[in-house]
């Protein structure tokens, strides 16, 4: 049984273009259980009724940043263990170090190709 068939993922990005691109790429890998949210708060709400294994989140969003979302996830027992992949345009030390402290599983710098995304996801959850 392939992991991709079971993996439940949520894509969080304020830009619908980015959500579309990531969802499109996931679809290409055969990952079909994908939800999306435009900001951290609605992502958390969605996850509360639709638990996920993996959160793929943009860093720079209005309201909650990607890392604030990560912190929120790690703070609640139900979501403490989810995989977290941060998508960021600027992968500077500050962000990465902070992400590390918060328990970020991996990060991916924009722009990326579908293959990059696949590698970044597989490094967290194993082969799709």
């Amino acid at each position: 049984m392939a992991l991709r068939d079971q993996l439940r993922t949520i894509v969080v990005d304020d830009m619908s273009t980015s959500r579309g691109l990531i969802t499109q790429a996931l679809d290409g890998f055969g990952v079909r259980h994908v939800e999306s949210a435009a900001d951290g708060a609605s992502a958390l709400q969605k996850i509360s009724s639709w638990p996920v294994h993996l959160v793929i989140s943009d860093m720079n969003m209005p309201g909650m940043t990607g890392l604030q979302l990560l912190h929120a996830l790690r703070s609640a027992p139900q979501t403490r263990g989810v995989g977290f992949l941060l998508i960021t345009g600027k992968a500077d030390r500050e962000i990465i170090e902070h992400g590390k402290q918060l328990g970020m599983n991996n990060f991916l710098k924009k722009p990326f190709q579908p293959d990059d995304l696949r590698r970044a996801i597989e490094a967290i959850v194993g082969r799709l």
Binding site: M1, L3, Q6, L7, H53, G81, V82, G83, K90, A91, D92, R93, I96, E97, K100, G103, M104, N105, N106, F107, K109, A120, A123, I124, V125, G126
Partner: peptide, 22 residues
Amino acid sequence: DTPDAEEVAFQPMAVSLDLPGL
């Protein structure tokens, strides 16, 4: 320019998913 990703050491952390049939 701000230091880029290459300079920042980061080791991806795996999560293990306990999925039936897997």
